[in-house]
Design a protein around this nucleic acid. Structure first.
Lengths: 146, 146
DNA sequence: CTGTGTGCAAACTCTTTGCATAAGT
DNA sequence: ACTTATGCAAAGAGTTTGCACACAG
């Protein structure tokens, strides 16, 4: 039995393939990154701001500095684990659902809700300008109180 | 001939129905607002940031403080003369085209290009959550270099 | 005159940065 | 050991605010 096998068994035992996800992304699975990853990926799709994630981490008893939260969110985004959303200009939101989907945004509450990727269809796209290609299309359906 | 008539004739003479647009919106046509309105609405559709508009105003020889530029952009937005865009989170953009249309956004250059309102069609919108109605739908087609 | 608008500087929010210390491999 | 990550506090960008003065009606 090699060291590598032992490592794999240990990872499976403590239920944490999060370590492995981080390692694959070239990120050391530090205490802080694991804590944030657990909050982010431990329970379905989420939309978080840096401040929210920071306070959740503190609430859960892990000390993580706000600067580290920002670093981590950007590292995760670069690694493709998160997608950054430009929704309201004031602050950045990060979405744990990186697949193709869109959003309702409640302008008064600041609440953000996923719209499944297959429900909205965008037709009639004009040709992108020369020398460019479409990276992706963001659709934000803005809501107000009735 | 009444005072009112004199005023109307003067407005027509200097070619400025901008004064009237501001008055209708409940905004006094001050020197600063007229200068900004001229820059904004004097030449086709535009996308501006506060800082860009401020420096254009200074370049044109009109002194306007940055705070007034912000005030004015928000007042114009509230009056329906502008639409605010949440494109890249870092700063706010204001669009002089308030009709229904969408945007190409070149992520690397930060360039913003209008897509005519009638070319894109969005289908398959789910029902908005209870107690809310759709205010409007923003479609941003994000571009990267080929 | 009266009320609104403007300018200035200070304050505020969100985010980034520099550098010494701590932790992972 | 060696390298990367973290924490702190300070700096930075963009935006807002409070209040005295100026201007439009």
């Amino acid at each position: 039995m090699t060291d590598k096998m032992v490592l794999e068994i240990k990872d499976v035992e403590n239920g944490s393939e999060l370590s492995e996800r981080l390692r694959v992304a070239g990120l050391r699975p530090t205490r802080q990154r694991l804590a944030l990853a657990t909050l982010l990926f431990g329970s379905g799709d989420r939309h978080v701001s840096a401040e929210l994630l920071h306070s959740e981490a503190l609430d859960s008893g892990e000390h993580v500095s706000l600067a580290t939260v920002y670093n981590t969110l950007h590292q995760f985004t670069q690694a493709g684990l998160l997608r950054e959303l430009a929704i309201d200009g004031a602050k950045a939101y990060f979405d744990t659902n990186t697949s193709n989907h869109n959003h309702f945004f409640h302008e008064q509450d600041g609440e953000l809700i996923d719209i499944p990727g297959n429900s909205i269809r965008v037709d009639g796209l004009p040709q992108p300008p020369d020398g460019t290609r479409i990276s992706h299309i963001d659709v934000v359906v803005r809501l107000v109180k009735k």
